[in-house]
């Protein structure tokens, strides 16, 4: 079993959901990313989704769009993100899921990426615009190399597509709480969490709920039902408003600790 599946198992044994924190690699710079991942890990995050910035992030709202733009202006590339993962690995064992869009991956080369990601110490991939139908070229080599491939299920997914995601998941399934982009305001997180719980039972895989989860209260709404909860835009915004890397690290420590406080099940 990989680090990501272990993290879910560990959270379950503590009778809580796993806290997944999204950070955009290279925002504000890659050295800061190392410190921010370590800070998240030390403050209660179970898994980090490390965003690989892309010029045209069509599934992201303004907060993550801006983070990606800042990162790209700073010269971030997929190769540099992998170097950063290697540095992070010397500091923490927190599972790292590379999270992004397909074109930088295609450009890098799928097999080469899998090899280099495995060597750097990354644990898996979640590619927003790579549905199961198009994913064989990345999923095959990743699974062979023992890296996770995380499929998504959306509110619009029909039973066939949900089943397909269940079959492809190697550790967990990312459940999109609503139709929308990242950072939107969730309309009914409670219903989404209950739906996720039902799917978890049906598929026999952990589901992590993302999109629209911003506060400790949101985490507390999700945690009794789903096996995982993802917070992204709120973390990215906390980093955006910080005046320096040190301040960003403090802000992430404070926010992640607070969010982790919402994980306890009654």
């Amino acid at each position: 079993m990989g680090r990501i599946a272990d993290a879910f198992e560990n959270a379950r044994s503590e009778n809580r959901a796993a806290l997944v924190i999204y950070l955009c690699a290279g925002d504000p710079d890659l050295n800061a990313t190392v410190e921010l991942v370590v800070a998240a890990a030390e403050s209660g995050a179970d898994i980090v989704e490390l965003g690989v910035p892309f010029s045209d992030p069509t599934a992201d709202g303004p907060a993550i769009q801006r983070a990606a733009q800042r990162s790209l202006r700073g010269g971030t590339t997929l190769a540099k993100v992998l170097e950063t993962v290697r540095v992070i690995r010397s500091r923490t064992h927190i599972p790292i899921l590379l999270f992004g869009y397909y074109n930088p991956i295609l450009s890098y080369g799928e097999q080469k990426l899998v090899d280099d990601a495995a060597e750097s110490g990354a644990d898996g991939f979640l590619v927003v615009n790579l549905p199961p139908e198009e994913s064989a070229g990345l999923r095959g080599p990743a699974v062979e190399r023992g890296l996770d491939f995380v499929p998504l299920v959306a509110p619009t997914s029909d039973p066939h597509r949900i089943q397909q995601a269940g079959e492809m998941a190697t550790s967990f399934i990312y459940y999109v709480s609503m139709t929308g982009v990242t950072g939107s305001t969730a309309t009914d997180l409670a219903s989404a969490s209950k739906r996720a719980a039902a799917l978890q039972r049906e598929l026999g895989r952990p589901l992590a709920i993302g999109f629209g989860v911003k506060t400790k209260a949101d985490v507390a709404t999700v945690s009794p039902h789903a096996d995982g909860v993802v917070v992204g835009s709120a973390v990215v915004q906390a980093i955006e408003v910080a005046a320096s890397t040190d301040e960003a690290v403090l802000a992430v420590r404070a926010l992640v600790s607070e969010l982790a406080g919402g994980l306890a099940r009654q």
């Binding site: 599934a59 549905p131 139908e133 198009e134 509110p155 619009t156 997914s157 995601a165």
Partner: peptide, 12 residues
């Protein structure tokens, strides 16, 4: 060609 879009759009 193909369909490289978010899961939410695949059913549409």
């Amino acid at each position: 060609g193909g369909r490289y879009v978010a899961e939410t759009l695949m059913p549409a």
